[in-house]
Design a binder for these strands. Sequence first.
DNA 1: TTCATACTTCGATCCTAACCGAAGCATCCA
DNA 2: TGGATGCTTCGGTTAGGATCGAAGTATGAA
Lengths: 226, 226
Amino acid sequence: MKEGPDIARIGTLIGDPARANMLTALMGGQALTATELAQAASVSLQTASSHLSKLQDGGLITQRKQGRHRYFALADAAAGSLLESIMGFAASRGHLRQRPGPKDPALRKARVCYDHLAGDYGVRILDSFIAREVIETDGENLAVTESGRQAISELGIDLEKLAPSRRPLCKSCLDWSERRSHLAGTLGKALFQHFLDNGWARRSSESRAVLFTPEGERRFLSLFPL
Amino acid sequence: MKEGPDIARIGTLIGDPARANMLTALMGGQALTATELAQAASVSLQTASSHLSKLQDGGLITQRKQGRHRYFALADAAAGSLLESIMGFAASRGHLRQRPGPKDPALRKARVCYDHLAGDYGVRILDSFIAREVIETDGENLAVTESGRQAISELGIDLEKLAPSRRPLCKSCLDWSERRSHLAGTLGKALFQHFLDNGWARRSSESRAVLFTPEGERRFLSLFPL
DNA sequence: TTCATACTTCGATCCTAACCGAAGCATCCA
DNA sequence: TGGATGCTTCGGTTAGGATCGAAGTATGAA
């Protein structure tokens, strides 16, 4: 039975708590330095360095040198998806590191999931789209409807520009705080980016939380009614 | 950073080579006894027993007592999907346990992937469906087209009966021998079952290979032209 | 040049968990 | 009832790898 892909190698990489913490931190979507990742994982810089080179060898992360810093980020969207899958599965089996759902209310409300919005607000986007038939679903797969294309362009998103990407346009991602699906894929990313670009929301500097301005909050709730 | 799902726990479970071998064996879709799984993983029965209880605690597998045997199987389709994701990712990064693709030509040609067909033949089904517009895709998500519903019912599959399932109807699954996608989901399962039910194919007793009868081979090639 | 910062490599320690022998429990068969 | 099979539990050993101190390399600042 020595056929096939080496899933044990990927498992081992993700199976160490320090590495898992680093990967979780990188799910924030931003590149982080070795020092920052060492703090995120609560290990020394030497230990972090060793972990990072293993993650890189395994193809989960990439590094970019910039001056005397080295920035580490998830290798690509596939790596992000993989971690999302595992998070969803772990959450579905009740494997949480503390109580169900994030303790911090801000994280529960809205947080970054690699490159799109998760938490209460993330789930709301998908719920609203499905209720208004912007997106249709067969249980897991998502597709934009004809009438939905119109609605999305009215939000200020150019679907034509997103289409050429090799990543799927919409994808569902199991939310571990809400235990329901939210919108991932290039559309999910574009919507999140749209809110950042307009200054309606920003990333928290300490955690994966996303903070909305009062103006952004108002817009969000009216753009995604239930 | 102690928020969120415990991905390290899942990673650790999958990260041990013996457990990974057991899970890979269970991807064949059939329930296996502890003794069989011990052989698959090349460990003693005691060691296997310990691994199996860990996998069960982690929610990856279930056991069913039957007389003096205990049959172990993947917990559900979600567990199968998770393993598929990881296999796909591992293969995409070139993490293979030997040379790329299965050594055994029969495995390359057709094998079981939890509950549907993989390998050359598995990829062919999806290729054929897409070429004939039975299924449409946006890169990763799959959906049956209107005209496709007709074609599928002509194959002898009742789509209405598959629809109520909570699992997605069609799903792509990265094939590690072909490095391309094949058809998973309830439709993929139903098609595979259809071939088994009609006696056109059967599972190999030793491996995950699927063996076609000459009659089954002929039918397969004509039902799924390229 | 010199010092400081950011990170890697080396080496030694220590701890977890995989492993198996032996014994125990449960089920089936004769 | 006795013995065989299938599996689990217990206990002790061992190996792999996570960890960090110390030393080494690279970049930037003074």
